[in-house]
Write a protein that binds this DNA or RNA. Structure first.
Length: 966
RNA sequence: GCGGGGGUAGCCGAGUUGGCCAAAGGCGCUGGACUUAAGAUCCAGUCCUUAGUGGUUCAUGGGUUCGAAUCCCAUCCCCCGCACCA
């Protein structure tokens, strides 16, 4: 279409700034509304999906603004962690993929040249987010308050926050096993792979190390199922591996080289003292823990030196790998001779049944192997077999009598108890390992390391958990399904490691500066900081002035301005002003964030507020939004539009292609905010077309020569629009932008079209309707709204206007009923024309005879008194001379009417009897005639001598005129 | 396993305090109008049947009810979270 949305967008964004709409100041005469979206992490470009939630919030904020609120909608970014560092490293190394990705998203060589350190990379993206995303999308945020977690003033705030957490008794220390990169320190291992380049799906698993005595030495096997020790019959080594001997705790252990490296990270004083070849260990006998039986060492191909200790105890009854490998070795004479094993010892090695499981026989491992059709070692299905049998065993299994004092226990219980018993007896130890290979972004392998003095925030604290749960009952939490869930989440929330070591960007931990506060912990209380950041950004206060006393005063109201002023050098006036700002803007009314926040950020956000701030400053609302996902790939699996992979369309490109308002409308209307939506360009394009269409239609209305007098249809249109206004307020009470946009961009549009089609053309009506309509467009499509507002000649900026209340005196149910009746008649005509398939030359309408209305009136009277029944109505009808003469027709109508009216309200049925249908259709005859292209005649069934060749008139009832075509 | 959500017409998706629901809206498709310009717009239709009626539907099978997409039970299937990732 002919619109250059880019020009319109720029024009109005500038006007908003000129008008100061992006600045939020305390105004005690107005109610306030403060809202944020959970700020994004700055680790690269965002994609079109991210704008969904952000756009919701701007639209909600704009709506609040036009309904009487003083709005504060600040934005910021989160840069804590190693995202900035690793991005900078890749850029400085000239990594091709990274450079290519940056350039594809609009980064220039000039920009690249400026990226001299991690902070400059982050600052570059801070600008991109603000200018190319949020400003570009027309957000009315108060940019003066922008903050980033790496700004020195923000750090002062976090420093204070942690002092307050400590005051609340929530900081605790204990040992912790963390995934660690030798170069970068602890890393986050998760599916988003922010810190790592491989292994996002890996989990940390606790293995039990079982010690098998062989002479003075111990073979160490790692197992996830310590409860199966009673079923041990042999021991597996990888004959290809050269194992290490290590000294630990006065013992000599034999484990794989890889395990040696891992174990050094978790145990102190480990010393390598020699080695032994796996093939030489075959044929050894070793003493199994707990059962104290000598079992033989056999070779196996499935043993991986990089998993666990590289040595495996064999429980064929319950481990599919063990079963199949034992079978295989028994049938392999070559192997037997190669390693000098005796047939006799093999024959003696038979599975022992130890666990009783529902749906399984004596040897669960064998059952699952047979079921899956596995015949030899190395079959990939063995992995499934293992998972199935482990899972079923864990949940349904019971230890058999053979298991000594553990007999009869459920597997879950036995696992814990047997592990502990062996540890206590010095026959076992614990060890942590990742389930798959994890590689850091720097390229080094990640392993689990023990950290002794790890700090945690104790989110398990019962007092604060309870307080938070109680508070949630008073909050507006959306969607409601999640709000039910939140109590469970809070209960489940445990201690959370809150600091980390190594090469990280972030705030130093106030009580020990070797630690850096980690990424989630410094992003929980921050909304309150937006109230203060403006003063730091404007250099009215310096970071070093932002002491504990300063925050204590402005946020908590502790101390007095005079003494804080003395200690910080900040004027008392300014301190008091900031304090008033905090009291005015807080609590936060709405925190909106993606569904990924449900179990981590939101609970932490809540608990920090509850633990640190007084009750009147606790948040009022949280809304969770779902995602825009990537297109489904061939396997049907939905792919996230990944920012690290950079496959999605860059935001500025999409904005240019579709127009910002079309995209905003797309986000708002494409689905409920509580479902995932697949990004589809064609769909966005249809919203673009809708925007075009509406602009055109409004411009036509503005430019039309409208001078027709007011008619019924004018009252109808104004009624409809006031009705819509009422509904918009109703749905927006729940921030339901989807319902709101359906009303504004579809219903209202259709009403305008219908008004026009019905010959409505009155300037005053059009102006009144347009004014309402354009205002309603402001929250979601602000640029278009401004443009049309101006073209229509309305005063000022629509963005600073107030939405009128619905004028209920103008809502006319009768008018709306009449138009619906007409439309029903039209679709009936069309229907009959289609089915009859005749060449229509004339249409005749007959409206209902008066006596039928009389029956309905009687029914209505009875309904009002709540005494409507079929016999009563029939009697009442028959009591009237004028009705009785219609004979049987009266009683049959009375029956139908009684049944139908019983289910309705008086208001619903009133128009049926009050509408003068004959007049309505007579007035509309010309219109109907024009629409159908043939003459239309209208008669009342009561009229004398009417044209009615098929006797249709008698079937007309109120609400449904009879139709005759010829 | 624990916890949560869900299965609605060709598709996407509303609707779940039971009735006004053959079920919004959009897309797609079909026919027409307009016009020759466009990823256009307007009108109509789009479960089966039918002079505007009737019939069968909202994963499947039961049940409650005068009445169920909406409530209850069972079954099948799908999705999400489970932690140091914002």
């Amino acid at each position: 279409m002919a619109y250059d949305y880019g020009v319109i967008e720029k024009k109005w964004q500038e006007r908003w700034v000129e008008a100061g709409l992006d600045k939020s100041e305390r105004d005690d005469s107005k109610p306030k509304f403060m809202a944020i979206f959970a700020y994004p992490g700055v680790t690269g470009y965002l994609h079109v999906g991210h704008l969904r939630g952000y756009t919701y919030l701007d639209a909600i904020a704009r709506y609040k603004r036009m309904t009487g609120y003083n709005v504060l909608f600040p934005v910021g970014t989160h840069a804590t962690g190693n995202g900035g560092i690793s991005l900078y490293r890749r850029i400085s190394k000239g990594d091709e993929g990274t450079i290519d990705y940056l350039k594809r998203n609009g980064c220039t060589d000039e920009d690249l040249a400026k990226m001299k350190d991690p902070l400059s990379v982050i600052e570059f993206f801070n600008k991109v987010y603000q200018n190319e995303y949020w400003r570009r999308f027309g957000f009315l945020s108060d940019w003066r308050r922008f903050t980033c977690t790496l700004y020195p003033d923000y750090s002062k705030f976090i420093d204070w926050q942690f002092r307050k957490l400590n005051e609340a008794g929530l900081l605790i220390q204990k040992p912790y096993y963390a995934p660690v990169c030798p170069n970068c320190g602890p890393v986050a291992v998760d599916a988003s792979e922010t810190d790592i380049s491989k292994g996002g799906k890996a989990e940390t698993q606790e293995y039990t190390l079982l010690k098998f005595r062989h002479g003075d030495e111990f073979l160490i096997a790692a197992t996830l199922r310590p409860e199966t020790v009673y079923g041990q019959v042999c021991f597996w080594v990888d004959p290809e591996t050269e194992y290490r001997k290590i000294r630990y705790n006065g013992e000599t252990w034999i484990i794989s080289p890889q395990a040696t490296e891992k174990i050094k990270l978790q145990k102190d004083g480990v010393e390598e003292i020699g080695s032994v070849a796996g093939k030489d260990m075959v044929g050894w006998m070793c003493e199994a823990p707990m059962i104290h039986r000598e079992i033989p060492v056999f070779p196996a191909t499935f043993v991986n030196p990089d998993v666990g200790t590289g040595l495996v105890t064999s429980v064929p009854s319950d481990a599919p790998d063990d079963w199949i490998s034992l079978e295989a070795i028994k049938k392999n004479p070559e192997m037997i001779t190669k390693y000098g094993l005796s047939q006799e010892i093999l024959d003696r090695t038979v599975p022992i049944s130890i666990i009783e499981m529902k749906g399984y026989g004596e040897f669960p491992a064998k059952d699952i192997i047979d079921k899956l059709g596995i015949t030899q070692p190395g079959d990939p299905k063995l992995l499934d077999a293992k998972h199935i049998v482990y899972k079923d065993g864990f949940h349904t299994g019971k230890m058999k009598d053979i298991c000594g004092e553990f007999a009869g226990l459920r597997v879950q219980e036995a696992q814990e108890k047997m592990k502990q018993a062996m540890i206590d007896a010095g026959e076992a130890d614990v060890f942590y390992d990742l389930t798959e290979e994890v590689v850091c972004r720097c390229g080094a392998r990640v392993h689990i390391k023990r950290i002794d003095d790890q700090w945690f925030i104790n989110y398990a604290d019962p007092k604060y958990t309870q307080m938070t749960k109680d508070h949630c009952k008073n909050m507006e939490l959306n969607p409601p399904e999640w709000s039910d869930n939140v109590y469970g989440v809070l209960d489940w929330f445990r201690e959370r490691a809150c600091v980390r070591l190594g090469n990280w960007l972030g705030t130093k931990f106030p009580y020990d500066d070797k630690w850096i506060i980690e990424a989630i912990s410094d992003s929980t209380l921050y909304p309150v900081y937006y109230i203060i950041s403006i003063y730091a950004n404007e250099r009215q206060i310096q970071p070093e002035q932002m002491t504990e006393a300063f925050f204590d005063y402005v946020i908590l109201g502790r101390g007095d301005a005079k003494s804080v002023s003395d200690s910080t050098g900040i004027s008392t006036e300014l301190l008091e002003k900031i304090r008033k700002d905090v009291l005015y803007w807080y609590p936060l009314d709405l925190n909106l964030g993606g569904k990924e926040h449900m179990t981590v950020h939101f609970p932490a956000f809540l608990m920090n507020h509850v633990a640190i701030l007084p009750e009147e400053m606790w948040p009022r609302g949280i809304t969770v939004n779902w995602y825009i996902t990537g297109k489904k790939d061939k396997s049907g699996e939905a792919t996230k539009i990944s920012k690290s992979k950079g496959g999605a369309q860059p935001i500025p490109g999409a904005a240019a292609k579709y127009g910002v308002d079309a995209m905003r409308l797309y986000y708002a209307n494409v689905a409920s905010m509580f479902v995932d939506v697949e990004w589809d360009e064609d769909t966005v394009m249809t919203y673009r077309q809708r925007a075009d269409r509406i602009m055109l239609a409004v411009q036509d209305l503005i430019n039309s020569e409208s001078d027709a007098p007011k008619k019924d249809i004018d009252a109808w249109l104004i009624s409809r629009f006031n009705n819509h206004l009422q509904n918009i307020r109703k749905v927006m009470d729940k921030n339901d932008l989807r319902a709101m946009t359906t009303i504004v961009y579809y219903d209202m549009f259709n009403d305008m079209k219908w008004y026009n089609r019905r010959g409505g053309n009155n300037r005053e009506t059009i102006t009144e309707a347009l004014k309402i309509w354009i205002q309603c467009m402001m929250p979601v499509t602000p640029h278009i709204a401004e443009e049309l507002w101006e073209q229509a000649g309305f005063e000022g900026l629509v963005s600073s206007n107030q939405l009128p209340e619905a004028d209920t005196t103008k809502i006319s149910l009768a008018a709306e009923y009449g138009e619906n009746l007409l439309r029903d008649a039209m679709s009936d005509i069309t229907e009959i024309r289609k089915i009859a398939g005749i060449d229509v030359k004339k249409i005749v309408l007959y409206t209902s005879a008066q006596w039928k209305k009389d029956v309905m009136n009687l029914a209505l009277d009875m309904l009002k008194d709540g005494k409507l029944t079929i016999p009563d109505l029939t009697k009442a009808c028959m009591a009237r001379e004028d009705l009785r003469k219609n004979g049987k027709a009266v009683s049959s109508l009375a029956q139908k009417v009684a049944v139908e009216f019983q289910r309705s309200t008086v208001e619903q049925k009133l128009p049926l009897v009050e509408t003068d249908e004959c007049r309505l259709f007579t007035d509309a005859a010309a219109f109907l005639s024009e629409e159908n292209g043939v003459p239309v005649e209208v008669y009342s069934a009561d009229a004398e001598g009417i044209y009615d060749p098929q006797g249709k008139a008698k079937v007309a009832v109120p609400g449904r005129p009879a139709i005759y075509l010829e």
